[in-house]
């Protein structure tokens, strides 16, 4: 895969700690690319290296096959995980300032500004100070400042944290629009469901290393053949004892079964039907969350507890 934005074995150490270890990524033009992983996996360090905020100890960041140069920063819109704006400035001033820092032409800034303020329902606040906005509004304002200079590449670190469902929907639609316009969006999150809904490509990192990458459909079909969604009347404790079942995840109203490679789902269905009444039996693709658990389990390193914690924290 020959990507638009490529990371070529980048490594970054802080003292003895390796934050990112020989990470290779290839991000195609015009897609939504998700970087997922638990807190402390090295997502932010990776993004900071892409942005030339810090520099890799070894390896390179390439754009269109060439190492990134000074002008690269102007082509990128970056929304950091840690949000902040000048509280004493008006919305207009903040947007203008941020656009100027990206060397956007003045006439473009003004037309774009009103368009975005309208879209984000902030137009009435244009001449108000940032400190007068609610937290969610400030998030949307920061989202505008990320996009005001019409960047080619958009990097969004933990975009949805702190937003209510209505604004999440609003911003999701904006992201899909941007993708339609051919922009490349790099999206990092520790909440797997979000990545699952938006991204075409996924890269999982853990402990500074890539655990998995590829298109979402590839990943799911590769890991998905043996998962069963099961709803039954009665007690499901016997499920563990059945032949050909590798793992049982039990939820309040249903079970998710992972079958071993050797068994046919029909045999399992028969075996269950003998014991209880089946309400629903369906072959499904596994959630990213389950894939991640599985992969991290194989590595069986100390990060696993973080992964679960990260995966369970829903919006």
């Amino acid at each position: 895969m020959n990507g638009y934005l490529q990371l070529d074995k980048i490594t970054k150490c802080y003292g003895d700690k390796i934050a990112v270890n020989e990470l290779e990524l290839s991000i195609p033009r015009g897609c939504i690319y998700g970087i997922i992983g638990p807190n402390g996996a090295g997502k932010t360090t990776t993004i900071r290296m892409i942005m030339s905020i810090i520099f890799p100890d070894s390896g390179e960041v390439l754009i269109d096959g060439k190492p990134v140069d000074k002008n690269f920063k102007n082509r990128v819109g970056y929304l950091p995980e840690e949000r902040g704006l000048y509280k004493k400035m008006t919305l207009k001033e903040v947007i203008h300032f941020m656009a100027k820092l990206k060397e956007a032409p003045a006439d473009k800034i003004n037309s774009q500004m009103d368009m975005w303020l309208e879209k984000m329902n902030l137009i009435d606040y244009k001449n108000k100070k940032v400190e007068e906005l609610s937290k969610g509004m400030q998030q949307k304002l920061q989202f505008i400042t990320t996009l005001i200079h019409e960047p080619d590449i958009i990097i969004l670190d933990e975009l949805f944290s702190g937003l209510d469902p209505i604004n999440i929907e609003l911003i999701k639609n904006v992201m899909l629009d941007l993708k339609k316009q051919g922009r490349t969006i790099l999206f990092s999150t520790h909440v797997m469901e979000q990545a699952e809904k938006l991204c075409e490509y996924i890269c999982m990192i853990n402990g500074g290393k890539k655990v998995l990458d590829g298109s979402l459909t590839e990943i799911k079909s590769h890991y998905g053949k043996n998962s069963i969604h099961l709803e039954i009347d009665g007690d499901g404790r016997f499920l563990n004892t059945l032949n050909g079942i590798a793992n049982v995840s039990s939820y309040t109203n249903y079970y998710e079964l992972t079958l071993t490679d050797s068994i046919e789902p029909n045999d399992v269905l028969k075996a269950i039907a003998e014991k209880v009444t089946i309400k629903r039996f369906e072959r499904i693709e596994p959630s990213l969350y389950n894939i991640f658990i599985e992969l991290a389990g194989e590595n069986s390193n100390s990060q696993t507890s973080n992964i679960i914690e990260g995966g369970m924290s829903h919006e």
């Binding site: 942005m51 905020i53 000074k70 950091p80 902040g84 704006l85 000048y86 941020m98 820092l101 990206k102």
Partner: peptide, 15 residues
């Protein structure tokens, strides 16, 4: 600017 985390945005635009 450090405490309000504007720094990171600034540094992503200027050196």
């Amino acid at each position: 600017e450090k405490n309000s985390r504007i720094m990171e945005v600034l540094i992503s635009s200027v050196s």
